[in-house]
Design a protein around this nucleic acid. Structure first.
Lengths: 221, 221
DNA sequence: TCGGGCATTAGCCGATCGGTTGATGCCGCC
DNA sequence: GGCGGCATCAACCGATCGGCTAATGCCCGA
């Protein structure tokens, strides 16, 4: 009750953070939020995934706060590399979440938690503490989405093959099957086959719906 | 040369700022960036457009730093209201810019400048100083886009009518012309006409390309 | 009052698409 | 060695689409 329950290692070593975001403003905001609390120490900052991986190799880092959309190397790829090389490091994804498409890949890549940037400050601090101990931390809206995916027997969210995606991109550009075939040096029949597979995977009835669904899932543009 | 050229009003009154963003982190980062410089004073913060308009009515504000995507009231609408009621206030749009669609509306609504959140700090400070004096401030990439729009004789970016958009939404959902006609209680011929207009306005050849272009322009989802 | 934009409808045509079935060859994995 | 996934091709059918022209009625602003 008096706060003397876990003082085994003195004031406790601060949790060392690596902040990864391509926006200086956001990095500043995060740094400010954590520097005020002696329980945390900002070990470093990075503006993209590649820099994050590089820094994490040299610095003593407990928790990485990671944005997903960044130049050079995106967050998902960075998480994958980080977890490969330093599995003891916990990665908290901290993103704007305007696109759903990134949540699952990030979690699969090994993110310990997923928070939205509009989370209140104290929730952030709590999340980092929890993440350091390996506890999963999910923003309520993210948790809901994840559960939704699990519960809903959605056709398993099959990924498109490279070829299918190429065809779909051409279709989105207004290409007819015949033109797409010429551009890809294949026959029109093959294009149609690819498209049929795309329809099945995306749950679409025609090219227009497929394009729409692809945009929704972040597969295009 | 000795810095004594513009000291007419002493240390000069600080530029009073209103920070508008739905992310606490971003607000913190902005506040931190400006509070370190005595030439600026953060008069207030708001988490959405409505709050921004309300605060601007009471506070003495010179420059508003405004995010665009926010709950309740978006940035564009807030800019419009602000400029109506307090035309002397300068509004600097400060956004992530993952969507093109917002740039032009924001400028039309009366934004003095448009900056990206990944701009370096000093560029931010310079931009606010310039904005306070009514100078237009555009991030290079934004300026380029704007110029591109001007130069390119793009079919004038014709907006879709409400009816056309409704048809397009149905098409994006995989609806055939006939089904769309039933749902809208109109004839199939009318649906086709609407779509032909949509194709012309969006520069698309077919429904798939129209859906893609609509997503690119932020007209869908 | 006279446009002009918008929504609505009609009919016609060739071109294209969606669906189906079946087949081949290549590759990696068990 | 076999199995499955992937990419490739073929031929066929009906359904749908895209493009065109032409009209009507409504409402708003010049």
């Amino acid at each position: 009750m008096t706060g003397a329950d876990a003082d085994a290692d003195g004031p406790a070593a601060p949790i060392r953070l690596l902040i990864v975001d391509d926006h200086p403003i956001v990095r500043d905001g995060l740094r400010a939020a954590f520097e005020d609390d002696p329980a945390f120490a900002v070990a470093g900052q990075a503006a993209d995934g590649a820099e994050a991986v590089r820094l994490a190799a040299d610095l003593e880092v407990d928790v990485v706060l990671m944005d997903l959309r960044m130049p050079k190397m995106g967050g998902v790829e960075a998480i994958r590399l980080l977890r490969e090389r330093r599995p003891e490091i916990r990665v908290l994804v901290l993103t704007t979440f305007d696109s759903d498409a990134d949540v699952l890949p990030a979690v699969e890549a090994g993110a310990t938690g997923y928070l939205l940037k509009d989370a209140p400050r104290d929730e952030l601090l709590r999340a980092v503490r929890a993440a350091r101990q390996g506890q999963a931390v999910l923003a309520p809206s993210v948790a809901q989405k994840l559960l939704g995916r699990m519960r809903a027997p959605e056709p398993a969210e099959q990924p498109l093959t490279e070829r299918e995606l190429k065809v779909l991109r051409l279709v989105a550009a207004g290409t007819t099957n015949r033109e797409a075939a010429r551009q890809l040096f294949i026959s029109e029949a093959t294009v149609k086959t690819h498209l049929l597979h795309v329809y099945a995977k995306l749950g679409a009835r025609d090219r227009a719906a497929a394009v729409a669904e692809a945009y929704k899932r972040g597969l295009l543009s």
